[in-house]
Every structure is written in structure tokens, then in C-alpha cells.
Simulated scan of single mutants.
Amino acid sequence: MGFLYSIIIGGVAGYIASRLMESHHGAIFNIILGIIGGFVGGFIARRLGNDPDNDGLLMNLLIAVGGAVLLIFLGRIF
């Protein structure tokens, strides 16, 4: 169930990040971006002292969106 949960949260996070950053890519790219963004956001959150595994759905979504936005931003720079 955890893997399916990650896919759903990643898809939603990728969609939200693409709308926030006005990045127009396909749905599959948004899902992948959201999943990777979730890992990046979770890594950063752990480094800052937060444990995303114990947080709720909304916090996990916000962390994944933040990571996906960061990835879009870095992609635009390079």
C-alpha cells in the first residue's frame, strides 16, 4: 500500500508543482517528477530535523510539492 500511496501523492504533487511553476509536460512526467520530488523533499525535511514518515497526508503532499518545485527550478537553471 505504501508504494501505491507514493504514486498517488507523487502524481498529485507533480501536477501541483507543474501548475505553480507553469511547466507544461505530460502526465507521466508529472508523476515521475512528483515521486522524485517527494524523495528530494523528504531528504531535505530529514536534514532539517523533520520526520515526514510520521506526518500526515497534507504534510507529505507539501514536502513532495516542494521537492518537485525545486527540481523544476533547477531544471530551468541548467
Rank of each mutant, 00 (worst) to 15 (best):
G41Y: 02
G41L: 02
G42N: 10
G42M: 05
F43T: 14
F43L: 14
F43D: 08
I44G: 01
I44V: 15
I44N: 01
I44K: 00
I44A: 07
A45F: 03
A45Y: 00
A45W: 01
R46A: 10
R46D: 06
R46V: 10
R46T: 12
R46Y: 13
R47D: 08
R47G: 13
R47Q: 15
R47M: 14
R47K: 11
L48R: 10
L48K: 13
L48S: 08
L48P: 03
L48G: 09
L48A: 14
G49L: 09
G49K: 08
G49M: 07
G49V: 08
G49Q: 06
G49T: 09
G49W: 07
N50C: 08
N50K: 10
N50Q: 14
D51T: 08
D51H: 09
D51S: 11
D51F: 08
D51P: 06
P52S: 07
P52A: 06
D53F: 12
D53E: 12
D53P: 00
D53W: 10
N54Q: 13
N54P: 02
N54D: 10
N54G: 13
D55G: 06
D55S: 12
D55K: 13
D55N: 12
D55V: 02
D55T: 12
G56H: 00
G56C: 01
G56T: 00
G56P: 00
G56K: 00
G56E: 00
L57Y: 14
L57P: 03
L57F: 15
L57E: 11
L57V: 13
L57C: 06
L58M: 13
L58R: 07
L58F: 15
M59V: 12
M59A: 14
M59E: 14
M59L: 11
N60T: 01
N60I: 00
N60D: 05
N60Q: 15
L61G: 01
L61N: 01
L61C: 06
L61R: 02
L61V: 07
L61W: 04
L62A: 15
L62Y: 07
L62C: 10
L62F: 13
I63K: 03
I63H: 04
I63R: 02
A64K: 05
A64H: 06
A64P: 08
V65K: 02
V65S: 03
V65P: 05
V65F: 04
G66D: 04
G66M: 04
G66Q: 06
G66R: 03
G66E: 05
G67Q: 04
G67I: 06
A68G: 07
A68K: 02
V69Y: 01
V69E: 05
V69F: 01
V69I: 15
V69M: 12
L70H: 05
L70Q: 05
L70T: 11
L70P: 01
L70A: 15
L71D: 13
L71V: 11
L71S: 10
L71M: 15
L71P: 12
L71R: 08
I72G: 06
I72N: 08
I72P: 04
I72H: 11
I72Y: 09
I72E: 15
I72A: 09
F73R: 12
F73I: 08
L74W: 13
L74N: 10
L74E: 09
L74M: 14
G75I: 09
G75C: 06
G75Q: 11
G75D: 09
G75L: 13
G75M: 12
